[in-house]
């Protein structure tokens, strides 16, 4: 269960986003002396939406930070297209992998367009002016996230879902084949969560590889192509949600008993009759 999986999915044939194999090799991440993740092997399927799930403190956010090179490995490597990401210049990495951190902060009064424009920074050298290409990409990102009518609104006047879509639009403007998101829906109500997940599905449909950390297992089953379940810094199960999510896995991850039923509409697994293990 811990072996590096082969890269199953290929990007859609009409996609213009290149496929970048993204792998983790014997990765060890530490916070000071405390080892969070040890010798972890993982392959992230290209052109798919991968959800990393697990209980609090299982190391899923740390793993994401490792993938984004925010956290330097104590041992092991993260390979992007066969190259160790530590060897990549930061600006180059930022044109391949975009990151939406959990504490996404924006100064008061910043507009949606202002925010999305930040996504162009990895593509601009310091002497370069704002180009027509940048302008076009920002307009496309606005359209992709369905934010055209809100372009000049200040972020603090938007709903949680709209604000999160604006942040995702910033990562779209970064034009990276890979997008990493740390709990993109944790502060949102149900409707706004769906708003964000549907946008992510759309981006995957265009050929991007998306990796997100999520809390809600049911949403992960519903929207992810690939599930990585972690506990105690180890991968407990990995694969398509329909195959790997079992009531035994739920107990193993969260110490919760449940019955799995099939969603009559989507056919995805649903958790029913939840109760803590006595």
């Amino acid at each position: 269960m811990n072996n590096p999986s082969s890269l199953e999915a290929q990007p859609l044939p009409d996609s213009n986003v290149p496929c970048l194999p993204y792998e983790v090799e014997a990765l060890t991440l530490r916070h000071g002396r405390y080892t969070v993740i040890e010798e972890l092997q993982l392959g992230l399927p290209s052109g798919q939406l991968t959800a990393i799930v697990g209980p609090n403190g299982c190391g899923k956010s740390t793993l994401l930070a490792g993938l984004a090179r925010l956290h330097a490995p104590a041992a092991g490597r993260v390979l992007l297209d066969g190259r160790d990401i530590r060897g990549l210049p930061s600006a180059e990495l930022a044109t391949r992998v975009a990151l939406l951190p959990q504490e996404a902060l924006a100064p008061e009064g910043l507009t949606v367009t202002d925010l999305i424009r930040f996504g162009r920074q990895p593509h601009q050298a310091w002497w370069q002016q704002w180009s027509e290409e940048d302008q076009r990409v920002v307009a496309e990102a606005l359209a992709a996230a369905g934010l055209e009518s809100l372009a000049d609104r200040s972020l603090d006047t938007l709903s949680g879902g709209q604000r999160q879509r604006a942040w995702i639009a910033m990562t779209i403007a970064q034009q990276t084949p890979v997008i990493l998101l740390d709990e993109p829906t944790s502060a949102l109500d149900l409707g706004h969560q769906l708003e964000v997940f549907e946008l992510l599905r759309k981006l995957v449909g265009e050929g991007r590889t998306i990796v997100m950390v999520v809390h809600d297992l049911t949403s992960a089953c519903r929207y992810a192509d690939h599930l990585v379940a972690m506990r105690g810094g180890q991968i407990v199960a990995e694969g398509s949600p329909g195959e790997v999510v079992t009531s035994q896995l739920v107990r193993e991850l969260y110490d919760v008993d449940c019955t799995l039923v099939e969603d009559p509409v989507t056919g995805k697994p649903l958790l029913a009759g939840l109760g803590r293990v006595q």
């Binding site: 930061s90 600006a91 990151l99 504490e103 902060l105 100064p107 310091w126």
Partner: peptide, 22 residues
């Protein structure tokens, strides 16, 4: 003059700034 653009990204937080390659 050379730093203005990267510096402006600090407003989005440390991690977001690093994510933009700074």
């Amino acid at each position: 003059l050379a730093l203005v653009r990267p510096l402006s990204s600090l407003a989005l937080g440390e991690r977001a700034s690093a994510g933009l390659g700074h």
